[in-house]
Design a binder for these strands. Structure first.
Lengths: 219, 219
DNA sequence: TTGCGTTCGTTAGAAGTTGTAACGCAGACC
DNA sequence: GGTCTGCGTTACAACTTCTAACGAACGCAA
């Protein structure tokens, strides 16, 4: 509390306004998706004029980029906490699911439909590799099962490209990739509502997939 | 050819213009995503004024809905052809992948980030169930392996809800769901570019997942 | 306490979007 | 040939993002 650093009152005010802008932006995104985000509406909500927001963000794109950054950081933090708690791959998976269900549009901001021209800034990919590292560590802890796959051979030595210089056995790389794609497959379809009206509980499908990832009995 | 039905010249012209509008719309979507679709730009491309398009589509939303419908129909047709060709689940999977790679934004229009308020019209869900039926049939043809899963028990008798009155064994339901989510998991992350710079071939990951779905050796 | 300078919020305006309304023309049908 | 339906137009309203110029307030420093 006392350690606010060497921040001038102006800087503190600026940070506070920026935070409120992002908060309103998240509300709008949760309500109507990222494409419906309107700077004007945010400004009106905050009781100020439209162009005022340009003192805080260069434009709509920069605001969204900042939100994407925050979303990545949020997931990375959740993963770090889960890793520290020692829940293993199961803990990581449930952390991911909870994080996704907590704000579906935030999940889609990270893993959803990309805009063709857009290229994420470097620090975002850095956070993404941090997330991958946590997943890879959890996968490396599991005992190897079955014979080495052809894909694993193809993956040989690629681990330090994904993460920050992090050697891992090819089988762990394969398993991490599989975890990622399978859990994302269930989650994204569930969040998008593609299971609506099918009459089953998506939670069971998620845990079933998780079981194939961690359990000895595969499928 | 000769059988154009009882179409007046006006109707034929109208259908032709509508088709060209959709064609331009697909070009725009492929270039910059669905959120960047502009009726004005389409009109300018076609050499007419903006409001003229409203003779053919009630608005932007209706045009996009129509494109979504076409996308679903396109995938359903591709699946029907693959089923007729007798390629089995493997054929279906490669059909899906080819269809997705052919126009990533079209794939995302079907399986990508949903707009919170939007609800798909009934006929779209009908086509979706047709797609599910093809997948379910291919899964039912495969021999059952392993013990019945808890999820399969939960899925008991749900098949005729997804498809059009199509009884299927629970194990096939579970396998169909797993196919869907796993293939979508790999495909959507690949198309979104999340594998970029990781140095491996996404095709191998896709086929590896497909092998776990069809092959006897599971993982 | 008295300036000074940075920063903020304002209004005005350009250029774009979706969508509506009213008008004229032209093609189709009787 | 007359009538009627439908198409494309321009004009306009209400939005959007974003720039430019102005004034006021605030923090800092002398």
């Amino acid at each position: 509390m006392a350690e606010t650093g060497t921040t001038t009152p102006r800087e503190r005010y600026r940070a506070q306004v920026q935070a409120e802008i992002k908060e309103r932006a998240w509300e709008q995104i949760a309500a109507a998706g990222a494409s419906a985000l309107s700077l004007n509406a945010i400004a009106k909500q905050m009781g100020m004029s439209g162009p005022a927001l340009y003192r805080y963000f260069a434009g709509r794109d920069e605001l969204i980029t900042e939100l994407v950054r925050d979303a990545y950081r949020s997931l990375a933090d959740a993963f770090r906490a889960a890793s520290a708690a020692g829940g293993g791959l199961t803990g990581l998976a449930h952390t991911l699911r909870d994080w996704a269900l907590d704000d579906p549009q935030r999940y889609f901001l990270v893993y959803g439909t990309p805009v063709p021209g857009y290229h994420a800034p470097d620090d975002v990919t850095t956070i993404a590799s941090e997330i991958m590292t946590a997943l890879l560590d959890a996968c490396a802890d599991l005992p190897a099962d079955g014979p080495p796959t052809p894909l694993a051979a193809h993956l040989e030595g690629l681990g330090d490209q994904w993460t920050t210089g992090h050697p891992a056995p090819p089988a762990a790389l394969h398993r991490a990739l599989t975890c990622w794609t399978r859990l994302h497959g269930v989650l994204s379809l569930e969040l998008a509502g593609h299971f609506n009206g099918m009459g089953f509980d998506p939670t069971l499908l998620f845990t079933a997939e998780l079981d194939t990832l961690t359990g000895a009995s595969a499928n």
